[in-house]
Protein backbone atom coordinates (compact mmCIF):
# COMPACT_ATOMS: atom_id res chain seq x y z
CA UNK A 1 0.00 0.00 0.00
CA UNK A 2 1.00 3.61 -0.30
CA UNK A 3 3.90 4.40 1.96
CA UNK A 4 3.14 8.03 2.47
CA UNK A 5 1.64 8.99 5.84
CA UNK A 6 -1.98 9.89 5.80
CA UNK A 7 -2.99 12.76 8.09
CA UNK A 8 -2.59 16.43 7.20
CA UNK A 9 -1.88 18.23 10.44
CA UNK A 10 -0.69 17.32 13.92
CA UNK A 11 -4.09 18.25 15.32
CA UNK A 12 -6.43 17.77 12.43
CA UNK A 13 -9.10 15.29 13.34
CA UNK A 14 -12.17 15.53 15.49
CA UNK A 15 -10.40 13.72 18.31
CA UNK A 16 -9.07 15.58 21.32
CA UNK A 17 -5.76 17.46 21.01
CA UNK A 18 -4.04 14.97 23.32
CA UNK A 19 -5.13 12.01 21.21
CA UNK A 20 -4.19 13.86 18.03
CA UNK A 21 -0.70 14.61 19.36
CA UNK A 22 -0.27 10.97 20.40
CA UNK A 23 -1.44 9.89 16.94
CA UNK A 24 1.08 12.25 15.39
CA UNK A 25 3.94 10.76 17.40
CA UNK A 26 2.73 7.23 16.61
CA UNK A 27 2.61 7.92 12.88
CA UNK A 28 5.95 9.71 13.05
CA UNK A 29 7.50 6.69 14.77
CA UNK A 30 6.17 4.34 12.09
CA UNK A 31 7.40 6.72 9.39
CA UNK A 32 10.90 6.82 10.88
CA UNK A 33 11.03 3.05 11.15
CA UNK A 34 10.00 2.69 7.51
CA UNK A 35 12.54 5.31 6.42
CA UNK A 36 15.30 3.56 8.38
CA UNK A 37 14.42 0.22 6.77
CA UNK A 38 14.36 1.82 3.34
CA UNK A 39 17.62 3.70 3.90
CA UNK A 40 19.72 0.67 4.85
CA UNK A 41 18.54 -1.57 2.03
CA UNK A 42 20.15 -1.31 -1.42
CA UNK A 43 20.01 0.20 -3.98
CA UNK A 44 21.22 3.44 -2.42
CA UNK A 45 20.13 6.76 -3.88
CA UNK A 46 23.59 8.35 -3.93
CA UNK A 47 22.83 10.80 -6.74
CA UNK A 48 19.78 12.19 -4.97
CA UNK A 49 21.69 12.34 -1.66
CA UNK A 50 24.44 14.45 -3.28
CA UNK A 51 21.80 16.69 -4.88
CA UNK A 52 20.16 17.22 -1.51
CA UNK A 53 23.52 17.83 0.17
CA UNK A 54 24.05 20.65 -2.32
CA UNK A 55 20.51 21.96 -1.86
CA UNK A 56 20.45 21.79 1.93
CA UNK A 57 24.14 22.27 2.71
CA UNK A 58 25.81 24.41 0.06
CA UNK A 59 22.83 26.67 -0.53
CA UNK A 60 22.37 27.32 3.20
CA UNK A 61 26.02 28.32 3.53
CA UNK A 62 25.69 32.11 2.95
CA UNK A 63 22.80 32.42 5.39
CA UNK A 64 24.54 30.35 8.05
CA UNK A 65 27.80 32.29 7.61
CA UNK A 66 25.92 35.56 7.96
CA UNK A 67 24.08 34.37 11.06
CA UNK A 68 27.33 33.09 12.61
CA UNK A 69 29.05 36.40 11.88
CA UNK A 70 26.21 38.37 13.44
CA UNK A 71 26.34 36.21 16.56
CA UNK A 72 30.12 36.80 16.85
CA UNK A 73 29.74 40.56 16.57
CA UNK A 74 26.84 40.76 19.03
CA UNK A 75 28.61 38.53 21.53
CA UNK A 76 31.80 40.59 21.31
CA UNK A 77 29.96 43.82 21.95
CA UNK A 78 27.72 42.46 24.73
CA UNK A 79 30.43 40.43 26.46
CA UNK A 80 32.89 43.33 26.42
CA UNK A 81 30.34 45.54 28.19
CA UNK A 82 29.70 42.93 30.89
CA UNK A 83 33.30 41.81 31.35
CA UNK A 84 34.64 45.37 31.63
CA UNK A 85 32.12 46.02 34.41
CA UNK A 86 33.50 43.07 36.37
CA UNK A 87 37.14 43.77 35.52
CA UNK A 88 37.51 40.61 33.47
CA UNK A 89 38.20 42.11 30.07
CA UNK A 90 41.07 39.70 29.45
CA UNK A 91 38.55 36.85 29.32
CA UNK A 92 36.80 38.37 26.31
CA UNK A 93 38.40 36.08 23.65
CA UNK A 94 37.61 32.97 25.69
CA UNK A 95 34.05 34.12 26.31
CA UNK A 96 33.49 34.69 22.60
CA UNK A 97 35.12 31.43 21.46
CA UNK A 98 33.36 29.23 24.00
CA UNK A 99 29.98 30.84 23.60
CA UNK A 100 30.14 30.76 19.82
CA UNK A 101 31.53 27.26 19.39
CA UNK A 102 29.76 25.38 22.16
CA UNK A 103 26.28 26.83 21.99
CA UNK A 104 25.52 29.78 19.77
CA UNK A 105 26.72 28.35 16.44
CA UNK A 106 25.02 24.95 16.82
CA UNK A 107 21.64 26.35 17.83
CA UNK A 108 21.73 29.25 15.35
CA UNK A 109 22.70 26.86 12.55
CA UNK A 110 19.92 24.48 13.59
CA UNK A 111 17.30 27.22 13.58
CA UNK A 112 18.50 28.79 10.33
CA UNK A 113 18.52 25.43 8.51
CA UNK A 114 15.19 24.58 10.10
CA UNK A 115 13.73 27.76 8.60
CA UNK A 116 15.35 27.50 5.20
CA UNK A 117 15.68 23.78 4.46
CA UNK A 118 12.78 22.66 6.67
CA UNK A 119 10.33 24.88 4.84
CA UNK A 120 11.86 23.89 1.50
CA UNK A 121 11.62 20.16 2.15
CA UNK A 122 8.12 20.42 3.60
CA UNK A 123 6.79 22.52 0.72
CA UNK A 124 8.53 20.50 -2.02
CA UNK A 125 7.33 17.13 -0.77
CA UNK A 126 3.84 18.46 -0.04
CA UNK A 127 3.62 19.84 -3.56
CA UNK A 128 4.75 16.46 -4.92
CA UNK A 129 2.19 14.71 -2.75
CA UNK A 130 -0.83 16.77 -3.75
CA UNK A 131 0.10 16.65 -7.44
CA UNK A 132 0.42 12.84 -7.29
CA UNK A 133 4.14 12.91 -8.11
CA UNK A 134 4.88 10.75 -5.07
CA UNK A 135 2.25 8.24 -6.23
CA UNK A 136 3.92 8.29 -9.65
CA UNK A 137 7.27 7.46 -8.04
CA UNK A 138 5.72 4.57 -6.10
CA UNK A 139 3.95 3.21 -9.18
CA UNK A 140 7.32 3.31 -10.97
CA UNK A 141 8.40 0.67 -8.41
CA UNK A 142 10.69 3.17 -6.69
CA UNK A 143 10.38 3.57 -2.92
CA UNK A 144 9.51 7.23 -2.24
CA UNK A 145 10.69 6.92 1.36
CA UNK A 146 14.12 5.88 0.14
CA UNK A 147 14.32 8.37 -2.74
CA UNK A 148 12.75 11.41 -1.10
CA UNK A 149 12.80 11.09 2.70
CA UNK A 150 15.94 9.07 3.47
CA UNK A 151 18.14 11.17 1.17
CA UNK A 152 16.91 14.45 2.65
CA UNK A 153 17.30 13.26 6.23
CA UNK A 154 20.80 11.92 5.53
CA UNK A 155 21.77 15.16 3.78
CA UNK A 156 20.57 17.19 6.80
CA UNK A 157 22.52 14.95 9.19
CA UNK A 158 25.74 15.41 7.19
CA UNK A 159 25.24 19.09 6.36
CA UNK A 160 24.46 20.41 9.85
CA UNK A 161 27.89 19.79 11.50
CA UNK A 162 29.68 21.18 8.44
CA UNK A 163 27.51 24.28 8.45
CA UNK A 164 28.07 24.62 12.20
CA UNK A 165 31.84 24.65 11.63
CA UNK A 166 31.36 27.48 9.13
CA UNK A 167 29.15 29.40 11.56
CA UNK A 168 31.69 28.90 14.34
CA UNK A 169 34.56 30.09 12.14
CA UNK A 170 32.64 33.17 11.03
CA UNK A 171 31.49 33.86 14.59
CA UNK A 172 35.00 33.74 16.03
CA UNK A 173 36.53 35.80 13.21
CA UNK A 174 33.81 38.43 13.32
CA UNK A 175 34.01 38.43 17.13
CA UNK A 176 37.68 39.30 16.74
CA UNK A 177 36.86 41.99 14.14
CA UNK A 178 34.28 43.58 16.45
CA UNK A 179 36.67 43.40 19.40
CA UNK A 180 39.59 44.81 17.50
CA UNK A 181 37.57 47.77 16.21
CA UNK A 182 36.88 48.79 19.81
CA UNK A 183 40.34 47.88 21.12
CA UNK A 184 42.90 46.48 18.66
CA UNK A 185 44.15 42.96 19.35
CA UNK A 186 46.19 40.70 17.04
CA UNK A 187 44.22 37.80 15.52
CA UNK A 188 46.73 35.16 16.69
CA UNK A 189 46.71 36.55 20.20
CA UNK A 190 42.92 36.57 20.20
CA UNK A 191 42.82 32.95 19.06
CA UNK A 192 45.55 31.75 21.41
CA UNK A 193 43.84 33.41 24.35
CA UNK A 194 40.42 32.27 23.26
CA UNK A 195 41.35 28.61 22.91
CA UNK A 196 43.67 28.57 25.95
CA UNK A 197 42.74 25.71 28.25
CA UNK A 198 40.27 24.30 25.78
CA UNK A 199 40.39 20.68 24.70
CA UNK A 200 39.32 19.14 21.43
CA UNK A 201 36.42 17.36 23.12
CA UNK A 202 35.06 20.70 24.30
CA UNK A 203 34.21 21.51 20.69
CA UNK A 204 33.64 18.06 19.24
CA UNK A 205 30.43 17.14 21.05
CA UNK A 206 28.69 20.53 20.60
CA UNK A 207 29.47 20.46 16.88
CA UNK A 208 28.35 16.90 16.31
CA UNK A 209 25.18 17.29 18.36
CA UNK A 210 23.91 19.15 15.33
CA UNK A 211 23.66 15.75 13.59
CA UNK A 212 20.64 15.25 15.86
CA UNK A 213 19.28 18.63 14.78
CA UNK A 214 19.75 17.56 11.18
CA UNK A 215 17.89 14.33 11.77
CA UNK A 216 15.04 16.26 13.41
CA UNK A 217 14.79 18.86 10.63
CA UNK A 218 14.99 16.32 7.79
CA UNK A 219 12.60 13.82 9.29
CA UNK A 220 9.95 16.25 10.58
CA UNK A 221 9.92 18.22 7.30
CA UNK A 222 9.80 15.03 5.20
CA UNK A 223 7.00 13.62 7.36
CA UNK A 224 4.93 16.79 7.21
CA UNK A 225 5.48 17.12 3.47
CA UNK A 226 4.60 13.53 2.61
CA UNK A 227 1.36 13.58 4.60
CA UNK A 228 0.05 16.81 3.05
CA UNK A 229 -3.48 16.88 1.71
CA UNK A 230 -5.49 19.32 -0.37
CA UNK A 231 -4.09 21.89 -2.75
CA UNK A 232 -2.17 25.09 -2.11
CA UNK A 233 -3.49 25.29 1.44
CA UNK A 234 -2.10 21.84 2.22
CA UNK A 235 1.30 22.77 0.81
CA UNK A 236 1.42 26.00 2.81
CA UNK A 237 0.32 24.20 5.95
CA UNK A 238 3.00 21.53 5.48
CA UNK A 239 5.72 24.16 5.01
CA UNK A 240 4.61 26.09 8.09
CA UNK A 241 4.26 23.08 10.36
CA UNK A 242 7.61 21.76 9.13
CA UNK A 243 9.37 24.92 10.30
CA UNK A 244 7.42 25.31 13.53
CA UNK A 245 7.76 21.69 14.64
CA UNK A 246 11.37 21.21 13.58
CA UNK A 247 12.41 24.49 15.28
CA UNK A 248 10.56 23.49 18.43
CA UNK A 249 12.13 20.02 18.49
CA UNK A 250 15.59 21.45 17.78
CA UNK A 251 15.30 23.74 20.81
CA UNK A 252 14.01 20.89 23.00
CA UNK A 253 16.79 18.62 21.75
CA UNK A 254 19.33 21.32 22.55
CA UNK A 255 18.16 21.45 26.16
CA UNK A 256 18.48 17.69 26.49
CA UNK A 257 21.77 17.41 24.59
CA UNK A 258 23.46 20.14 26.65
CA UNK A 259 22.79 18.09 29.76
CA UNK A 260 23.84 14.84 28.10
CA UNK A 261 27.08 16.35 26.81
CA UNK A 262 27.90 17.80 30.23
CA UNK A 263 27.33 14.35 31.76
CA UNK A 264 29.33 12.45 29.16
CA UNK A 265 32.16 15.00 28.74
CA UNK A 266 32.51 16.64 32.17
Amino acid sequence: MSKTPSVALPISTNSSPVVAVLEWFGEFGIFMWQVLRAAVSPPYQIKEFVRQLDEIGARSLPLVALAGSAVGVVLALQARYSLVRFGAKSLLPSAIVFAVVTEMSPIITGLVVSGRAGAGIGAELASMKVSEQIDAIEISAVDPLKLLAATRIAACIVALPLLTLVASFCGVVMGWVASTIVEPIALMRFINTGFKGAEFKDFLAPTFKTCVYGMIIGSVASFQGMRAKGGAEGVGSAATTSVVLSSLFVILADVILVKVILLLFP
Binding site: S127, M128, S131, E132, Q133, D135, A136, I137
Partner: peptide, 10 residues
Amino acid sequence: FLFQHAALYD
Protein backbone atom coordinates in the same frame (compact mmCIF):
# COMPACT_ATOMS: atom_id res chain seq x y z
CA PHE B 1 0.14 4.61 -15.40
CA LEU B 2 -0.97 7.91 -16.87
CA PHE B 3 -2.29 10.25 -14.19
CA GLN B 4 -5.16 12.64 -14.72
CA HIS B 5 -2.83 15.64 -14.47
CA ALA B 6 0.18 13.73 -15.84
CA ALA B 7 2.02 13.99 -12.46
CA LEU B 8 5.30 14.84 -14.15
CA TYR B 9 8.21 15.52 -11.78
CA ASP B 10 8.34 19.29 -11.96
